[in-house]
Simulated scan of single mutants.
Amino acid sequence: MSKRIVPSHYHGLEALELLAPDGARAVLLLHGAHLVSWVPAGAGEQLYLSPKSAFSSGQAIRGGVPVCFPQFAMRGPLQKHGFARSKPWQLVLAEQGEDDALAVLRLSDDAASRMVWPHAFEAELSVRIAGGTLELELACEHKGQEGDAPFDFTAALHTYLGLEELSDASLRGLAGLHYWDAVAGVEKQQRTDLLLPGSPGTEDLDRIYHQVQQDLTLIEQNAGRPERRLLIRQQGFADTVVWNPGAAKCAQVADMPADGYRKMLCVEAAAVEHPIRLAPGESWAGLQSLTLLGPDDEAAGTA
């Protein structure tokens, strides 16, 4: 028997507090369909949320999982990362099931969106939590009439993964992939399976990995704490963005502490290199799932 979840408030914004029967928890804002917290059953917070982030209507939030749509970064005429993350979304469904909790939010075109992006669309974000797993699905449908022009969009789930310390982290599963290095402005190939984001020369990371089909694993190893392994999977999204601003750039980010870069690594499911094209009536969906692995789970994410 499902139990309806009633909206509450988080930092003054309307929010859904998802609670699965096994104790897994998450907080999803209607503002931007922005996930700001995910706590797996029996574990701690897995996402990074900047303590300096503004929780104001119409403004983007730094951390959690912003929804980049219908434009990634500055790759188009719209504001950076599009308008979806700063607009109010409508509640479609929020309920606790027998073994999970689920919420679905929807964003449709309106007069304001059509002024900057003249297309009829409907986007939905679905969030499901159960045990050690979080599933995020972004879907989009072209709601235009027959004969209307198709539209293109790029998108990403801009997931900020929380860290105890960047220098203790590695990301496994990238070997052999080609990527666009936005810092150097060139296309490169990943030679090794492990990416060490806190090592010399890689503190400032801004990479778009292409044709990502294998699982990835975020690993944190510190002598004073148990090893943490987070399995990262995606479907429908062809690219994975890996981002960390490093010390110099982080110090210039107004809504992050100067040392905030040490506490996060963005691993984003994205559709960037090849924009998604939809004709009237067509739809698309992309999924990112995160699973906190226990000590008895087999190693995953190897290439």
Rank of each mutant, 00 (worst) to 15 (best):
K3M: 11
I5V: 14
P7Q: 12
P7Y: 15
Y10E: 11
G12Y: 06
A20T: 01
P21S: 07
P21H: 07
A26E: 09
A26S: 06
V27Y: 01
H31G: 01
G32A: 05
S37C: 09
S37G: 06
W38Y: 09
V39S: 03
A43P: 03
L47P: 04
L49E: 03
S57R: 08
Q59M: 00
A60T: 11
F72Q: 00
F72C: 05
G76S: 08
L78I: 12
L78N: 05
Q79T: 06
A84Q: 10
K87F: 13
A94S: 08
E98M: 09
L102P: 00
L102I: 08
L107S: 05
D109N: 13
A112Q: 15
R114Y: 09
W117L: 11
H119D: 07
F121I: 07
V127G: 03
L134P: 07
E135D: 14
E135Q: 15
E137Y: 05
G144C: 10
G144N: 08
E146S: 14
G147R: 05
D148G: 14
P150D: 09
P150A: 13
D152Y: 10
F153Y: 08
T154A: 02
A155Y: 00
L157S: 02
E164W: 05
L166I: 12
H178Y: 12
W180M: 10
D181Q: 03
A184M: 13
A184V: 10
Q189P: 02
T192E: 14
L194E: 08
L195N: 09
L195R: 09
L195M: 14
L196P: 06
P197C: 07
T202W: 03
L205Y: 11
I208H: 00
V212Y: 13
Q213G: 15
Q221H: 09
Q221Y: 09
N222V: 03
P226A: 12
L230C: 09
L230G: 00
L231C: 04
I232M: 14
I232C: 07
Q235R: 15
G236N: 12
C250Q: 08
Q252R: 02
V253I: 14
A254I: 06
D255R: 02
D255V: 02
G260Q: 05
Y261L: 10
K263N: 06
M264Y: 03
M264I: 08
L265H: 11
L265E: 11
C266H: 05
V267M: 04
A271P: 01
A271M: 11
A271W: 06
E273D: 10
P275R: 00
I276P: 00
I276Q: 06
A279H: 13
A279S: 13
E282P: 01
G286R: 04
L287A: 00
L290G: 13
T291I: 10
P295L: 06
D296M: 05
G301V: 11
T302P: 00
